[in-house]
């Protein structure tokens, strides 16, 4: 069991290292640099800028310096926001994304799993059709459409919620709906189908035959196994949602990490690209790790060192 966790953690760290490396070299392969402007800078100034940020060093030296910095959680200065450190910028932007993201995640978990279970238990009844109909609709409408239509109807036309920014509790409604729409529908469908699958299995029939109360069969025996695919999906989903979505933050004009990543790429702000990617990757890797830990609780075979076959 100990080996299992050690192995998982090692591979998580390795993945993180790999992501940082790939991003670093890909980013430098993007044409243009942080100081490429429409108007050519005088060569001396450009040279001075490059020296100031060590951009004239060989790429491998830059890589080594950056990775050493990363080890001490120092992500360097931003190239485009003068005088600000990437760490500070992320600390500034991340909370906005995380706040909305966490609310969205809670909404998803609180709604999708019960709805999926109800839908599976009442298979082919009106409530199942209703839930599945809305869930199918949810996965077919892109988040940018949900976000714009919401902003248009409720903020512009009806004026019920503020159109831009996060000024009152009402302004969270739109971003949360737009962020959670797709995943909410997806998790509902996933819970339903995996619950149906599990309920068909022999051990459930055995449990019922043994006279175990129905709620116990459902929640102790069936749900536990039915949640495995859900947990697999939810882990990475949380990472993606709490680090912000470009579309949602752009449409509702929120000052979060999602918008910042895309602007950083556009501006070739190297350290900022690295910073956002590494932050996202770190959260992502931690979530995947948590998923693995969750597996080992749900499925004891994994803890005993047997390989999971998917």
């Amino acid at each position: 069991m100990k080996n299992y966790y050690v192995g998982r953690i090692t591979s998580a760290i390795f993945t993180l290292f790999l992501i940082a490396t790939i991003t670093f070299f890909m980013m430098h392969a993007i044409p243009g640099g942080p100081f490429t402007r429409e108007r050519q800078l005088p060569p001396e100034i450009e040279q001075a800028m490059l020296e100031r940020y060590h951009l004239d060093d060989p790429l491998l030296v830059q890589y080594k310096d950056y990775m050493l910095g990363l080890l001490t959680f120092d992500m360097g200065p931003s190239f485009r926001e003068r005088g600000r450190m990437v760490n500070d910028l992320i600390a500034l932007k991340f909370p906005t994304s995380a706040k909305i993201g966490l609310i969205a995640v809670l909404c998803i978990l609180a709604l999708a799993i019960p709805l999926g279970i109800i839908s599976a238990l009442k298979q082919n009844r009106p409530i199942d059709y209703l839930v599945m109909f809305s869930a199918t609709l949810g996965v077919t409408i892109p988040s940018f459409v949900i976000a714009t239509v919401f902003a248009y109807i409720f903020a512009v036309r009806l004026g019920w919620v503020p159109a831009l920014g996060l000024t009152s509790w009402k302004s969270y409604i739109g971003p949360v709906i737009a962020l959670s729409g797709y995943s909410l529908s997806f998790v509902t469908r996933l819970t339903r189908s995996s619950m149906l699958e599990v309920l068909r299995q022999d051990y459930i029939r055995t449990a019922r035959a043994n006279g175990i109360p129905e709620w116990k069969v459902l929640f102790k025996h069936a749900l536990k196994n039915a949640l495995i695919p859900v947990v697999t999906y939810v882990g990475p989903m949380i990472a993606a949602i709490i680090t912000g979505s470009f579309v949602v933050e752009k449409i509702f004009d929120l000052n979060g990490l999602g918008v910042y990543f895309v602007t950083a790429v556009e501006k070739r702000d190297y350290t900022m690209i690295m910073g956002t990617t590494v932050t996202y990757a770190a959260i992502y890797v931690v979530m995947v790790l948590l998923v693995d830990v969750a597996y080992s609780f749900i499925d004891p075979r994994i803890r005993l060192g047997k390989k999971r076959e998917d």
Partner: peptide
Amino acid sequence: NSIPLLLYVILLMVM
């Protein structure tokens, strides 16, 4: 599989 792919799609598109 453990790499967030959308980031790479964006980076690749710009690259």
